[in-house]
Amino acid sequence: MSKILIIDDDVDIVEAIKIVLESKGHKTITAYEGEEGYKKAGAERPDLIILDVVMKTKDQGFQISYKLKNHPELSKIPILMLTSIGRETGFRFNKETDEDYLPVDDFVEKPIKPNELLSKVNKLLQHK
């Protein structure tokens, strides 16, 4: 089973994801702030990172994803990005069109649909 790092400032979202992933036997690590998450990624070397966009700043998640992908050793870890901003800012994220400037591997919309989350998590873990 895999080790998954969840980075989101919303404790309830973190809790929901944690329950879902742990029910399938995954081990979870949590961080409630971007920088803290980045540090934990370095220390724990998870198999997958689930990362929220809007935390301390509106784009902290983006910043962290850049930092991770530019890190020599952490760049291999797949990132699943949590978004809820599709409708608010007027653009929806899409793996095909946005990967050039967003170095993440897939997106999950909030609210979390457990089955969708699990299938995306499994896909990324397999591809690893």
Partner: peptide
């Protein structure tokens, strides 16, 4: 919207 998304996620769980 933010707390609603949390509630929704938890109910789904």
């Amino acid at each position: 919207k933010t707390p609603l998304a949390s509630i929704q996620s938890l109910i789904e769980v």
